[in-house]
């Protein structure tokens, strides 16, 4: 079975994006007080993007040359999914646990494969506290914190 080239999928994503924006632009008024309105620019842009995405999909589909960079597989895919999942979980828990604790867990998880656990705990706790100190105390920016203030 012939599988689609990865580039085609990426082109399809652009196509869907531009079609959604195109349909949305139709609901905005094309003319305004000074002649042209808020719908004019988006309509033309998304229209062009639809055509360009189709061009891209077509040329990628037709091209004989093999993809120079295939879709991520194996370890690479695992690493990327792991990083992304860690970031999303981090986003989820940071309002509950506060910056220091969630950051420690986040760093511990990402460093787990490279350092032994006791060293890892040291690095994670140290780096989180250091970043907290720099941002919250020295630069006095607001960070998401737990009810104890860290």
């Amino acid at each position: 079975m012939k599988t689609w080239k990865a580039g085609v999928w990426f082109g399809l994503a652009f196509l869907i994006f531009s079609i959604i924006f195109f349909i949305q632009s139709l609901t905005l008024s094309y003319s305004g007080a000074d002649g042209l309105g808020p719908g004019f620019f988006p309509l033309w842009l998304s229209g062009m993007l639809v055509i360009l995405s189709l061009c891209y999909i077509y040329t990628t589909f037709k091209s004989e040359e093999s993809e120079s960079e295939p879709m991520p597989r194996g370890t690479e895919l695992k690493n990327i999914v792991f990083i992304l999942a860690s970031m999303l979980i981090y986003l989820g828990v940071v309002p509950l646990l506060g910056f220091v604790l969630s950051s420690t867990i986040f760093l511990f998880a990402l460093l787990f494969r490279y350092y032994r656990w006791h060293l890892n705990i040291g690095i994670s706790v140290g780096a989180s506290l250091f970043l907290f100190w720099i941002f919250a105390k020295v630069l006095s920016v607001t960070l998401p914190v737990n009810e104890f203030g860290w």
């Binding site: 990083i83 970031m87 981090y90 986003l91 940071v94 309002p95 910056f99 950051s103 986040f106 760093l107 990402l110 460093l111 494969r113 490279y114 350092y115 690095i123 780096a127 989180s128 970043l131 941002f135 920016v141 607001t142 960070l143 998401p144």
Partner: peptide, 22 residues
């Protein structure tokens, strides 16, 4: 391998501080 988790964290913090928004 030590650098990238910390960089990720710094990116998160930096982005958060623009509008204090997750």
């Amino acid at each position: 391998q030590l650098l990238f988790p910390i960089l990720l964290l710094v990116c998160c913090v930096g982005t958060y501080t623009i509008n204090n928004s997750l």
